[in-house]
Design a protein around this nucleic acid. Structure first.
Length: 814
RNA sequence: GCCGAAGUGGCGGAAUGGCAGACGCGGCGGUCUCAAACACCGCUGGGGUCACACCCAUGUGGGUUCGAAUCCCACCUUCGGCACCA
């Protein structure tokens, strides 16, 4: 009798063997078709937690399956290792961010080895290594030369907790996505990436299979809206300016009874009359003190102040008052609107509060336009009160009005986006230095490519001051200007870490290249990613940035094709046994190291996949582990303790076992293709039970039995790589099971020779019949009416209808 | 407020127009054992019955259909996203 299944002995042994053999290395020169499987790389926070396992195990299973299908699979891993936690550790505990980070990487790498995942460690990428961030800087320079990186002053999101600015995508409900602090607005000069240049292309998802949900979120975030610019002349003595507004409803221009500027609009100061100056200044003051949350609240009463100035409607010369109000955002459109209270809910509320005119410019059968309106109505039938346009049908209104404005030189059709450029400056130390130099003579000068990387200085003081700690390192900051050789200063801000993760998938293809971020050959060989997996929380951050970055890289000639990742699958999040997010304070943390110590890696891997559908996530069930462990023991038992084997392929038992085996191949393959790991394991459990029952009869056909056991091991190999490798070896099969071909299923062998037909009367199940698999409708009907139960219910009545679903069901309607 | 996903036994879940509850946990009963553990076998939605029969049951209420967890309408609840974007 063979030894009992003891995961601890076999797992470390096989892990060492695989590593020594570089079993999972994807060679560049390999004739097999490539498959690039990628799962989002982790931040090295210290310990590998269950969430990491949950994110990494299923992609490992899928990658192993692909390898068995005959692909040259690249499944790399690395670390997204720049970022704030390292610096915060430095501030709190006086540890150097670099030491902290690299110690964590060391630890997490060893924890990942225990997972038994098939990562290609030869391709490891660490974003805080100078050999990596040198290329992040190189990308920055290329974007700068193309006009895609620029410096500008703008209202920036300032996180007081992180002591740095954030991109719009990193502000959630007015709070910092990382620290949850309330975000403040500050006007600062910062570096931006011109993601808006690709707004239109980012709305197209041609040729990629991404979840509808993610595509919708990105589409909404980009927020395309068609409309027009219209120019109103400012009617203020001594101010010769146009007031440009963006509107999606140029057809309502005759109903514009006032204008509204954002309080931060640059024209406010120049047009405000002396009489209104005090009110305007104090309103601006009050607005600037509000948090983003207060300001964006839709519940709040609309407030605003009259500037004392007027503008002239270019269509009819009407003189309309100019107000400022915080419901108009300086960051969207032109920061100014024409207000049409009759047809816009917000403008209507404002007009009501301040007693401003309301003019309807569309007729509508259910609205009496001669009486004061109770509420705004957005749409109507024909234009009214609109001079020469009166009578124009709504469908033609926008086109005619815009054409008129364009002819008159005071308007044009345009498309506006909600998406804003990506603010990438961070006032922190532990990030990629922005490779720019500020020279008093030459202005902004890029660091020459030959001087890259601009490395981070060491031994820095980290007290948060709101400016980058780098400013304090005189010997680092002060440099010679590359252009005029005069004294100059380095840019002291570092890049948003989302920059690092925007192109890491390219670097895995060619991780050690010292000439380029990725060679043309490597890019052609490996890119794009065939299957990407990760959490959906990155929908409008990483997943949008990386698409932008790829398109820019394509236009720079570095990569080919339009999209970085062909297929995307988002897993859900694994929760504690109590259904809450795992946290130390709740005491519901499941530590992978403990689970592995207790049950082994194979069992933990399988249990994570078995608890439910991967895309839904859900609570981890530690007591359910018993079922998985029993199943693995059963697999061990049938593989090591066969029945007496005979050469009797023709028996019913032999055929039944082969049928079970081939149905399992068919089902498991389908489940695997669909990433349905929980039901996949169910199918494998059923097959193990079938084998056990066959074994317990004491005798089995040799060919059917060997096939059943071999197939069970092969199909289980991606999920439980260690125990299957061990059993495969014990059966004397060639090393390694993970290099074997995925079994093929034979439909002939999988076919049933008997079917169960459900008999219904009036849609209710009354009986079941067993018929030969090749029985047709006529036989089925005959057998059904012969059933005593059916006959009793029929009681001699003539059926109205008989519905027959081949090989499944027969329903008699009375 | 708007958009989307979901709601099924004691629990995780399966079934996406055709046998509701696969698979597993837990529970109950049994075999083995001096005993326990492990393992194995049987039962396990509710009512009803000695046992069958039968009836009820997939958040709630309607509808479509021979037939609905599945499709449609309304509502309730939970989760996610968006939320003055002119």
């Amino acid at each position: 009798m063979a030894d009992r299944y003891d995961p601890h002995v076999i797992e470390s042994r096989w892990q060492a063997r695989w590593q020594a053999d570089r079993l999972y290395h994807a060679p560049d020169d390999d004739p097999r078709p490539k498959w690039y499987a990628l799962t989002m790389f982790p931040y090295p926070s210290g310990d590998l937690h269950t969430g990491h396992w949950y994110a990494m195990v299923p992609p490992d299973v899928a990658a192993r399956y692909r390898r068995m299908l005959g692909n040259n699979v690249m499944f790399p891993m690395g670390f997204d290792s720049f970022g704030l936690p390292a610096e915060n550790a430095a501030i709190k505990r006086g540890i150097d961010p670099k030491e902290w980070t690299y110690a964590n990487i060391e630890r997490m790498r060893s924890q990942m080895r225990m997972m038994g995942a098939s990562f290609d460690w030869d391709r490891e990428v660490i974003t805080s290594d100078p050999e990596y961030y040198r290329w992040s800087q190189w990308w920055f320079l290329q974007l700068y030369h193309r006009g895609l990186a620029y410096r500008a002053e703008a209202a920036a999101n300032w996180c007081p907790g992180c002591q740095t600015v954030l991109a719009n995508e990193q502000v959630v409900d007015g709070r910092c996505e990382r620290s949850d602090d309330l975000v403040e607005r500050r006007f600062l000069t910062q570096w931006f990436f011109r993601i808006t240049a690709y707004a239109e292309e980012l709305l197209r998802f041609d040729g990629i299979e991404w979840p509808e949900r993610i595509r919708t979120m990105q589409t909404n975030w980009i927020g395309r809206s068609e409309g027009a610019f219209l120019d109103f002349a400012v009617d203020v003595p001594g101010v010769d300016e146009k007031l440009r507004v963006f509107t999606t409803r140029p057809d309502t221009v005759y109903g514009a009874t006032f204008m509204v500027l954002a309080p931060e609009h640059p024209l406010v100061d120049r047009i405000t009359t002396p009489a209104q100056r005090g009110a305007v200044d104090s309103y601006i003051e009050a607005t600037s003190r509000q948090t983003e949350i207060e300001r964006l609240s839709t519940e709040k009463e609309k407030t605003g102040v009259f500037t004392g100035a007027f503008a002239k409607n270019p269509f009819n010369g009407a003189r309309v008052p100019i107000w400022i109000a915080d419901y108009v955002l300086v960051t969207y459109g032109t920061g100014a609107i024409m207000a049409v209270p009759a047809h816009d809910e917000r403008d209507f509320a404002f007009a009501r509060t301040y007693g401003l005119d309301v003019i309807s410019v569309f007729s509508r059968s259910d609205v009496d336009t001669s009486r004061p309106l109770e509420e705004a109505y957005p749409s109507g039938d024909r234009m009214i009160n609109s001079g020469p346009f009166d009578g124009t049908p709504a469908a033609e209104a926008i086109g005619r009005v815009v054409a008129h404005a364009a002819a008159g030189g005071y308007g044009q059709a345009t498309v506006n986006y909600r998406l804003r450029d990506w603010l990438i400056s961070r006032q922190r130390y532990w990030g990629t230095p922005i490779p720019m130099i500020h020279c008093a003579n030459c202005g902004i000068v890029p660091v020459p490519e030959a001087d890259l990387p601009v490395t981070l200085p060491e031994h820095v003081k980290f007290d948060p001051t709101g400016v980058s700690p780098l400013t304090q390192i005189a010997e680092w900051v002060n440099v010679e200007c590359p252009a005029c050789h005069g004294p100059a200063r380095r840019e002291t801000d570092t890049m948003d870490t989302f920059m690092c993760s925007s192109w890491y998938q390219m670097r895995y293809a060619d991780p050690h290249n010292t000439e380029r971020p990725v060679s043309r050959d490597a890019a052609r060989r490996w890119l794009p990613v065939d299957q990407y997996t990760g959490g959906a929380e990155h929908a409008v951050m990483h997943l949008l940035y990386t698409r932008f970055f790829w398109k820019a890289a394509r236009d720079l000639g570095v990569v080919e094709g339009d999209e970085p990742m062909v297929r995307l699958f988002n897993q859900g999040s694994i929760l504690g046994p109590d259904g809450n997010r795992m946290s130390k304070s709740r005491g519901n943390v499941v530590a992978p190291d403990d689970q592995v110590a207790q049950w082994g890696s194979d069992a933990f891997r399988c249990q994570l996949m078995f608890v439910g559908p991967w895309d839904q996530g859900g609570p981890y069930n530690p007591t359910g582990m018993a079922g998985i462990v029993r199943w693995l023991h059963r697999l061990w038992s049938v593989a090591t303790e066969p029945p007496v084997l005979t050469d009797t392929p023709g028996t019913a038992e032999a055929r039944a076992l082969r049928r079970a085996t081939h149905k399992t191949i068919r089902d498991v393959t389908l489940e695997l293709e669909g990433f349905r790991f929980n039901t996949l394991i169910s199918r494998l459990m059923e097959h193990s039970t079938a084998m056990q029952k066959a074994r317990d009869r004491g005798v089995a056909d040799r060919a059917a039995w060997d096939e059943a056991v071999d197939v069970a091991l092969l199909l289980t190999a991606p999920l439980a790589p260690h125990v299957t490798e061990e059993l495969w070896a014990q059966r004397g099969r060639p090393y390694s099971i993970h290099l074997q071909r995925w079994p093929a299923f034979d439909p002939e062998l999988a076919r049933d020779d008997e079917i169960e037909l459900v008999l219904q009367v009036n849609g209710k199940v009354r009986d079941r019949l067993h018929l030969p698999a090749d029985a047709g409708e006529a036989e089925a009907r005959a057998a059904a009416f012969a059933s005593p139960k059916v006959a009793a219910l029929l009681a001699g009545k003539e059926p109205k209808r008989v519905i027959y679903v081949p090989a499944r069901l027969l329903n008699i309607v009375l």
